[in-house]
């Protein structure tokens, strides 16, 4: 066990966990931020996507010992009032079915649009390929990203 201070959604949090603890479980079990989801644990599904210094990152495969001073943003911290362009587009297009993958989809899409505000179709497809949606909402995910790109 070791003491860590990590910055999540602009706030410092102290946790006492083993150095190999993935940020996913630090968020869910210790900080009680439950929006970041567990899907596979091996970096294959994207359900656990967060931003680390603005970069979309799989929190299931990121041990706390490697985070240091980095700034972590989770779905809860993406916007104050659910008004990030991506969140708004998600609601407008009624993207979710079960909804479980959607926090990861949104976080991945938001980081992607930050880096590429006016993406082509194939750039979107490539960027989103790591996020599995078992319910098959892919078509709406794409539409929502295009709307967010126009409005963001």
């Amino acid at each position: 066990m070791a003491q860590y201070e990590i910055k999540i959604n602009g706030k410092a949090h102290q946790v006492d966990v083993a150095p190999d603890t993935p940020i996913l479980w630090v968020l869910r079990d210790h900080v009680k931020l439950l929006g970041t989801k567990f899907g596979c644990g091996i970096g294959q599904c994207g359900a656990c996507t967060i931003h680390v210094d603005g970069v979309a990152t799989r929190s299931c495969s990121l041990p706390i010992s490697s985070v240091g001073e980095s700034s972590i943003i989770t779905i809860e911290g993406l916007s104050e009032n659910n008004d990030h362009p991506v969140q708004k587009a998600w609601v407008e297009h009624d993207v979710p079915q079960c909804g479980y993958c959607q926090a990861g989809q949104i976080m991945n899409a938001a980081a992607f649009l930050d880096q590429n505000p006016h993406p082509s179709d194939s750039e979107i497809d490539k960027a989103m390929n790591g996020n599995i949606c078992r319910c098959g909402t892919y078509v709406r995910v794409k539409k929502a990203i295009k709307t967010a790109a126009e409005q963001g």
């Binding site: 567990f38 659910n82 909804g99």
Partner: peptide, 17 residues
């Protein structure tokens, strides 16, 4: 629209997990 749509996009704790 899905009645939970806003909550899902905010990452609210809705699921069993």
């Amino acid at each position: 629209k899905n009645v939970d749509g806003q909550k899902i996009s905010k990452g609210e704790p809705l699921f069993g997990l």
